[in-house]
């Protein structure tokens, strides 16, 4: 069966010739929770930008459900493949406006009850709903960003260190809420590609792990993970009754 994403010799080169992604060939299956790890500057964020076409490769091809990424209207593609960027940010307006942003863009209804439910699910006080979003703290904004993405019920969620501003126990709770929220909304399998620095968390929650270094998939160096995982590693455990459903 055709994988969800297929990358073939993907290269992203800067104007000066430096390669942020250097000949990456790989597949991502539907329903995976793929954790992407690696040193800073390894190309992890770039990889996510490629998957919902905020960036086009300099060379190589990316296929989504067997069709080249360019064959999709980028706006429709990003409706199903949603990216939560690294630094959570807000548009002007209330918390509700911000949580509903994705749905409003696609002219979908966004009832207050759904917003309140999302805030609660991500550990936010529902009293914040009418507060000015730009008054929120970084951690609160990160939760709003995730609520915003989940409410769109995307097929694929791309998380760029979306929980980096939270302490590890909160991060785990938020991610579990996220996986639960995704499964509860919409039909079919939900896929998450998730850039993180937290090995332990990745081991607990991911169904598969990638180690990205200098724009390529490779083996993690000794000591990067106590267990000395391989370049492409099956997650040993899975929370919530098995990540691979």
């Amino acid at each position: 069966m055709e994988p969800l994403f297929r990358l073939e010799g993907v290269v992203v080169a800067e104007a000066d010739g430096r390669r942020r992604i250097d000949g990456l060939s790989a597949t991502i299956e539907s329903g995976e929770r793929l954790a992407v790890l690696g040193p800073s500057g390894a190309g992890k964020s770039t990889l996510l930008f490629l998957l919902n076409r905020l960036l086009d490769p300099t060379a190589g091809s990316i296929f989504f459900r067997g069709r080249p990424l360019q064959a999709y209207d980028p706006r429709e593609l990003r409706r199903s493949v949603v990216l939560v960027p690294q630094r959570a940010t807000a548009v002007s307006g209330t918390v509700a406006d911000n949580v509903c942003l994705g749905r409003r863009i696609h002219r979908l209804p966004c009832p207050r009850e759904a917003v309140a439910e999302m805030l609660a699910a991500f550990g936010l006080d529902t009293g914040l709903i009418d507060r000015d979003a730009r008054a929120l703290s970084g951690g609160e904004l990160a939760r709003v960003a995730l609520a915003r993405a989940v409410l769109l019920a995307p097929e694929v969620l791309l998380l760029d260190e979306a929980t980096a501003s939270l302490d590890p126990p909160s991060a785990e709770g938020v991610l579990r809420a996220l996986f639960a929220g995704l499964s509860a909304r919409g039909e079919g399998e939900r896929t998450v590609v998730w850039v993180t620095h937290d090995w332990a968390l990745a081991r607990r929650l991911a169904s598969r792990m990638w180690w990205l270094e200098r724009g390529r998939l490779s083996r993690p160096p000794e000591g990067a993970d106590e267990a000395g995982a391989e370049g492409e590693t099956r997650g040993t455990a899975a929370g919530e009754g098995g990540a691979r459903r």
Binding site: L54, P74, A90, G102
Partner: peptide, 12 residues
């Protein structure tokens, strides 16, 4: 960051 936020959600 805000521009990327709009685009990443599928905004025109």
């Amino acid at each position: 960051e805000v521009l990327i936020l709009w685009l990443s959600l599928g905004a025109d």
